[in-house]
């Protein structure tokens, strides 16, 4: 008989945590009876959520129904109110072991208290960078490092054929993820006849860069305007300067870009050294000057660009998003 796994968090095709949950359900559906517990009432009518759980042995339920369906182990992923709502305490009082994956670089409300009270049996970190940030809080708690898994099938490799060279980025429209000089950064790369594409853009970002005049070469899209895979497949280069002081805990959109064959150019630090081999499956740049040199080289050399893109896609498929390796890591992490 399969063990019972309760997953807390809403799966969908949009957003980092939601897509992670969607892909985990798919990955683990043959190993567990899975109950997916969501907080709001509208989820059962959300087709995106419903489609994400349409597997035999997977049920979508409201959080309040947990006590009617006790589980052996509960996995909560990046649920903002998971500790403050009291649900973590509810789950564990019946003996269910709680595995928690925060996924962010900051602690959630009530998280530290819950750890002190012993509610978290095991914590999952997505990278060493993230683990380091939580070193003190999780001292003495069992830990596992499991990088995120992105289902490669959702991001097929696409050979670039567009006549207009496009660089861009995909991320939350959070201003802290963008450097102070973002539009100048792109425009100073010195590319001719280029299109700059950004998703997601927001009113907050517009205000942040109100001093800049965005010309017609800019294509600034609101969140979820275009499905991530489609958006990324329209980019030649994924150029990803980050906000000054911001630390990326993993780098989902970078891996998604790689899967589609988009060449990633990322800043030094963060978790990017774990994601790519510099010069083979992407480029890690220590300064604007390095971003510029690499961008111009790739702009002028289509064959090289396509080759690195293919290598990035291969690396992402076989190393970063190896389905069986991830399944084994999760099975171990969810077994007590």
């Amino acid at each position: 008989m399969k063990r019972k796994l309760a997953v807390f968090g809403a799966p969908s095709s949009v957003g980092g945590a939601a897509t992670k949950i969607r892909d985990l359900i798919r990955l683990l559906r043959f190993d567990f009876d899975i109950g997916v517990y969501v907080a709001g009432n509208g989820f059962s009518k959300n087709q995106d959520v419903v489609r994400s759980v349409e597997y035999e042995g997977v049920a979508l339920r409201h959080r309040s129904q947990f006590d009617k369906h006790p589980a052996d182990v509960a996995l909560a992923v990046c649920e903002l109110d998971f500790f403050s709502s009291g649900i973590a305490a509810e789950i564990t009082k019946g003996g269910t072991r709680l595995v928690w994956s925060n996924d962010m670089m900051w602690e959630f409300k009530g998280e530290a208290e819950a750890v002190r009270e012993g509610l978290v049996s095991r914590v999952i970190f997505v990278s060493d960078v993230q683990r380091t940030a939580f070193l003190d809080m999780y001292m003495g708690i069992e830990q596992r490092l499991i990088p995120n898994y992105v289902a490669p099938g959702s991001f097929p490799l696409v050979e670039r054929k567009s006549s207009t060279f496009a660089i861009g980025r995909l991320s939350r429209p959070d201003p802290v993820k963008y450097p102070k000089d973002f539009p100048v950064f792109y425009e100073s790369l010195g590319l001719e006849d280029v299109c700059y594409r950004v998703q997601a853009w927001s009113e907050e970002l517009r205000k942040k860069y109100a001093w800049h005049r965005f010309g017609p070469e800019w294509n600034l899209l609101p969140a979820n305007k275009i499905p991530a895979a489609e958006f990324l497949s329209q980019l030649d280069l994924f150029v990803y300067p980050l906000g000054n002081g911001f630390v990326e805990s993993w780098g989902r959109s970078t891996v998604e870009a790689m899967l589609t064959g988009c060449v990633p150019l990322v800043p030094r630090g963060h978790n990017f050294e774990q994601m790519m081999l510099h010069g083979e499956s992407g480029f890690i740049c220590g300064s604007f000057a390095e971003f510029k040199v690499v961008t111009q080289e790739l702009f002028g050399n289509r064959a090289l660009r396509l080759q690195i893109g293919r290598q990035a896609a291969h690396h992402a498929r076989t190393v970063l998003c190896n389905e069986e390796e991830h399944r084994m890591m999760w099975l171990e992490a969810l077994t007590f």
């Binding site: 000089d181 100048v184 000057a289």
Partner: peptide, 9 residues
């Protein structure tokens, strides 16, 4: 240096 994009320029 925070706003210039390319310091070399």
């Amino acid at each position: 240096q925070m706003l210039c994009g390319d310091p070399q320029a």
